[in-house]
């Protein structure tokens, strides 16, 4: 229990240990801790910024979507208008075509009628000649009476 040289030995040991701790233990550990604190701080700040950016991006996306919706609506409107126009054009063209066809048909009918009439005329003259032949019971020179028959046919 006496005070002896151990006291000085312990003091020296303490100075050595504290010195070592001060030089080689404390600074690196505290550095690591402070570095990590900084990293966490930066990480949180970055997360905040990220959230801010996300919000901006969402707002931007909503703007873009609204814009697109507006554009789509206007395109649909234009398309509808165009479709109506096309339908109207089609109707007009159809009408015209119908009229043209109608006129053509009418003209054809007219021509057909004329041709039939012409044919009938020819046949009528032959019928007339045959009738006359039967009536007269004698031969009549068709060539000699052609002018008369022609006149008759003309009158039909």
């Amino acid at each position: 229990m006496d005070i002896n040289l151990t006291l000085i030995g312990q003091t020296i040991a303490m100075i050595v240990f504290v010195g070592f701790c001060m030089k080689f233990i404390w600074p690196p550990i505290l550095n690591a801790i402070e570095e990590r604190q900084k990293q966490i701080e930066h990480g949180l700040a970055a997360a905040d910024r990220g959230e801010e950016k996300l919000k901006q991006a969402q707002a931007e996306a909503e703007d873009i979507i609204a814009d697109a919706r507006r554009q789509a609506t206007s395109i649909i409107d234009q398309a509808n208008a165009r479709a109506n126009e096309i339908v109207a054009d089609g109707k007009a063209a159809g009408q015209k075509e119908r009229e043209r066809q109608l006129a053509a048909a009418e003209a054809e009918i007219q021509a057909e009628t004329n041709r039939a009439r012409e044919e009938l005329r020819g046949q009528v003259s032959a019928v007339a000649i045959a009738g006359a032949e039967k009536i007269l019971m004698r031969e009549i020179d068709a060539n000699a009476h052609e002018d008369i028959l022609g006149k008759l046919a003309q009158e039909l």
Partner: peptide, 18 residues
């Protein structure tokens, strides 16, 4: 004391932040 130095110095030497 050396045990303290050893245990803590080992950490200090390889102190990793992440």
């Amino acid at each position: 004391g050396l045990l303290f130095i050893f245990l803590f110095h080992r950490v200090a030497r390889r102190a990793s932040t992440s």
